[in-house]
Design a protein around this nucleic acid. Structure first.
Lengths: 197, 197, 197, 197
DNA sequence: TATGAATGAGGTTTCATTCAT
DNA sequence: AATGAATGAAACCTCATTCAT
């Protein structure tokens, strides 16, 4: 691959094709799982197979790009909610929306899982953006008393990945999410009990 | 499942081979994931590839058999706990143990997920055994006031699958499980009842 | 690939196919050069592509096997000539025959070249067989006064590779070989003859 | 060779690019062999891949141009030596130098081989230049008694190609070249001369 | 019944060549 | 004229499945 002369902007049609490939990959991997073939992606994108490999020199790099894009999009949504009026609603609403997306897209679940683990790869590099935004949402919700104080962003990410999987693969619905949410809310009674005791 | 000639009982060595293959498959899929090759399974089992396909005519059927075996084993464990002294401990202990297994074996997670969804396939047919036993564990724990009354076996299965995934892929630990458990515990009444009583 | 149970002889049909593949590869590489495709070899051998890769798991290993087979055959011919009546004729005759083969088969030239260099790979392992036999032929010819005393097997191998290449690629014929042979002959006799004359 | 619009002289920058590509190709093919990619050549030349194909419409034509350039350079060296003081030294020195170059550059060997065979292609058309100059060197050396009288330029070209190959691929060194040189020297006179001296 | 050799579709990747910018 | 993105044939290799031994 000839790298573009440094400083020169990439050509418009190339950018367009890159985006088309990425979008097609996102859809194909969402529907068929990440073992879908690169040819399928090319077909869906309406480009030649060579074009896919020009933009993403290995299948792994394509997959990575898809996951990164998903994570960044989620991080963007989270950031927007950081200034919402009701911090509790913002936090739980975001959580719900991510889970709902995962139900349709397997890739989202994988992205969440990898973002939690992988500090190395590109996925890991994009993870912090989401974790940071989620951390802010969490902190605000905690300050407002909507979420218990003794959980951190890491636990929330783990719970999110699990619920996403449950929604997408195990056919679980709001009932399950409700349990998780209750687990995240501050405990009322025990404190009274503790006060009494 | 291999159907022997009708009326003829399967030969002893054939049964032994079937068991060897199943055990090998369980281990191989646990370690390498379900995309491991059938040859690998045959090698680990110490049999020819042809023998694997004689007992399990497609790779999918082999995978299914592995999942069914896992589910049946879990169901067995659950049934044993149905007569345990402390129903709450029995329920949460079982839940924890399943999640711990999943952390080591991807296949367990898949089994749980499929068991929740698939009412059709063989996995779905084995699911009810687990779901029934889990239902008993759940009912006893609810009656003892250790688990909130408004959740059913289906929700617990979903939560279990999600937590199993979180444990195996997203690197989540007891922290996350604690949140889920708190979500499962009664919110108000039990403590009041305890306080009153 | 499942390795055969140690001690069990390979199946007859497998051996037959292995030989067919090797023969086809030899011919294909001879005609089209070593960059010919593995599919072409399979087609010529009349087997599926999978069969080629079962016997030779990489293209490189196939190529290596071809070269080794060629070297071993040449070594065999050389060994037979070690007991020939006229050591000079044996040596030069062998040299000529190798060169003649190379004219038709590029692969022979490559085999000779690699045998000279590579002490590592399988080709290098087969090289010594040829070099040893050639060494014997050479020593006998030197003792008989047909070849000058101050050259060793390594130089002869080098000369052989060069002449093989010249014959196969540069269109050189006996004229060139005659020069090389004159270079190999002892320097004294002709002069004595000339002195006498 | 790029044909400009008839009557229009090629632009200066185009000529410059052509030269850059040719130089890059020579180096790339020397180091990586002739199977190096055209992209690699473009990168080394610092031009776009399209520019390479504008000047050399196929990879084969680029390769040919490289070989022709090499042959012409060798022919130039040979011509310069045609007026050297010692014809024997000129001839053998040239031979040695060509072989030494080949040890580093595969392409030289190929050029020599093709020059010997191909009367058709561009390589064949450049060959005569070298062959003529070599013929002159040879004739002078023969007249001076340094080379036997019964060999012609064709044989010398063949020997040269073979020795070039031996040097580059078979790891042969001066020992082998010495044999070839001895084969080229007159059989009787020089030694008598030496005996006399 | 058990074996493992044979099969070939399908996957990833490379690269000479074309063509819009 | 120069560029480099796009193309797709073709290469190597894997693996689920079949079938002769």
């Amino acid at each position: 691959m000839t790298s573009p002369a440094p400083g020169r902007p990439p050509r418009a049609d190339a950018l367009r094709n890159r985006a088309k490939v990425l979008a097609a990959a996102e859809e194909v991997f969402a529907v068929q799982g990440t073992s879908a073939s690169t040819e399928e992606v090319a077909r869906k994108a309406g480009v030649g197979i060579g074009t896919v490999f020009r933009h993403f020199p290995t299948k792994e790099s394509l997959l990575e790009a898809v996951l990164v894009a998903l994570l960044e999009r989620l991080a963007g949504e989270a950031e927007e909610l950081c200034s919402a009026a009701d911090p509790g609603e913002a936090f739980f609403g975001f959580f719900s929306r991510v889970v709902a997306q995962s139900a349709a897209k397997q890739a989202v679940t994988e992205a969440l899982a990898e973002a939690g683990i992988d500090a190395r790869g590109a996925t890991g590099r994009a993870g912090p953006g989401l974790k940071a935004a989620l951390g802010t949402l969490l902190a605000r919700a905690q300050k407002a008393g909507a979420v218990r104080a003794d959980v951190g962003p890491a636990e929330v990410m783990g719970l999110l990945a699990g619920m996403a999987y449950a929604a997408g693969r195990a056919g679980a619905r709001e009932d399950v999410l409700r349990i998780a949410f209750d687990g995240l809310r501050p405990r009322t009674r025990p404190q009274q009990a503790a006060a009494r005791g």
